[in-house]
Amino acid sequence: PTIVLKVSPEELKALEKAGVEIEKIEKNEDGELYITLTPEALKKAGFE
């Protein structure tokens, strides 16, 4: 199962800087950012 999270541009930068593997980055028509994370990326980021 993949996880989709709504993030701010600042959060996205912080995640990328931390080396979190982001599978997909999407922006909706309201300009909101959503990222898709794999279970492996979540484990690496410390989420179980």
Rank of each mutant, 00 (worst) to 15 (best):
V4W: 08
L37S: 04
K44W: 02
G31D: 06
P9Y: 07
K27T: 13
G46I: 04
D30R: 14
G19S: 05
E11H: 13
N28E: 04
K13F: 14
P1M: 13
N28A: 10
K27G: 08
A18C: 14
K43L: 11
L42Q: 06
G31Q: 03
E29Q: 11
L5T: 02
T36G: 02
K43H: 09
E26C: 14
K6L: 07
L37T: 14
E40N: 04
E10R: 12
G46V: 03
L33M: 08
V20Q: 01
E32Q: 13
I35M: 02
E29A: 12
V4P: 02
G19W: 03
F47Y: 06
E23G: 07
E23Q: 09
K44L: 10
I3V: 13
L15M: 09
T36P: 00
E11L: 15
K13P: 01
D30S: 12
E23C: 11
P1N: 11
D30M: 13
P1Y: 15
T2L: 14
E23H: 09
E16W: 15
A14P: 00
K24Q: 08
L33V: 14
E26D: 09
G19M: 06
K6V: 05
P39Q: 14
L12A: 03
E21C: 05
I22W: 08
E26H: 09
S8Q: 05
E48L: 13
P39E: 15
L37I: 11
Y34C: 05
G46M: 04
E40T: 06
V4Y: 12
N28Y: 08
K13E: 10
I22A: 02
L33S: 03
K43C: 07
E26G: 05
I3H: 09
T36K: 04
E32V: 12
I22D: 00
E26T: 11
K6C: 07
E16L: 14
D30N: 13
I25D: 01
G31T: 02
S8V: 03
L33Y: 12
K6S: 05
V20Y: 03
P39D: 12
E32Y: 14
E11W: 14
V7N: 00
G46P: 03
L33Q: 03
T38V: 02
K24V: 06
E26P: 01
E21I: 07
A41H: 02
E48P: 15
E21K: 05
K27E: 10
I22F: 10
I22H: 02
G46Y: 04
I25E: 02
Y34N: 04
E32R: 10
L37E: 00
I35A: 04
E32L: 12
L33N: 02
K43F: 08
E11C: 15
L33W: 10
I3M: 11
T38F: 03
S8A: 05
L12V: 05
L5H: 02
G46K: 04
L12M: 07
I25T: 06
P1Q: 13
E21Q: 08
L15F: 07
A45Y: 08
T36V: 06
A18R: 15
K13H: 11
E40H: 06
I25S: 03
T38H: 05
K27R: 12
I25Y: 06
K27D: 05
E29M: 10
G19R: 07
S8T: 10
F47E: 06
E48C: 08
V4R: 12
K44Y: 03
G19L: 05
L12R: 01
V4N: 03
S8D: 03
A45N: 03
P1V: 12
E32P: 03
I35N: 00
N28T: 11
E10Q: 12
E11P: 00
E23W: 15
I35L: 06
E23I: 12
G31I: 01
K44T: 05
T38M: 04
V20K: 00
T38I: 02
K24N: 10
A45L: 12
P9G: 07
D30C: 15
P1T: 12
D30A: 11
E21A: 08
N28I: 05
K43N: 13
S8P: 01
A14R: 15
L5A: 02
G19N: 07
L33F: 10
V7D: 00
L37N: 00
I35E: 00
K27I: 12
A45I: 07
K13W: 14
S8M: 05
V20A: 08
K43Y: 10
E40Y: 05
E26M: 08
K6A: 05
K44S: 07
P9E: 06
L42Y: 15
T38R: 04
I25R: 03
K27L: 13
E32S: 15
T36D: 01
L15T: 01
L5Y: 13
E48Y: 03
I22V: 06
I3A: 05
E11I: 15
L12S: 01
T38P: 02
E32G: 11
G31Y: 03
L37G: 01
E11R: 14
V20W: 04
K17S: 11
V20D: 00
E48M: 07
K13G: 07
V20H: 01
V7W: 01
L12W: 09
P9N: 06
K24I: 07
G19Q: 06
E29D: 11
G19F: 06
L5C: 07
E21N: 07
A45T: 03
P9R: 14
K24P: 01
K44A: 08
F47A: 07
P9K: 13
L37Y: 02
L15S: 00
K17T: 10
T38C: 05
T38L: 03
E48T: 06
N28V: 05
L42K: 03
T38N: 04
E48Q: 04
G46C: 11
L12C: 03
V4D: 02
I22M: 07
K13R: 12
F47K: 08
K24Y: 08
K24H: 10
T38K: 05
I3C: 13
G46D: 08
A41G: 05
T38Q: 05
P1W: 15
A41I: 02
E23L: 14
A18D: 04
L33T: 11
V20G: 01
L12Y: 08
E26Y: 14
E23V: 09
T2Q: 10
K27V: 12
N28Q: 09
A18W: 14
E40S: 06
S8L: 07
I25F: 06
P1S: 10
A41K: 02
E16S: 12
E16D: 05
F47W: 11
D30Y: 13
A18F: 11
G19P: 01
L12Q: 01
S8K: 11
L42H: 10
K24E: 05
P1A: 12
E21Y: 09
A41Q: 12
E11V: 15
K44P: 02
K13S: 10
E21F: 10
I3D: 01
T36H: 13
A45V: 06
E21D: 09
A14E: 11
G46T: 02
L5R: 09
L33K: 01
E29C: 06
T36F: 14
L42W: 15
T2R: 14
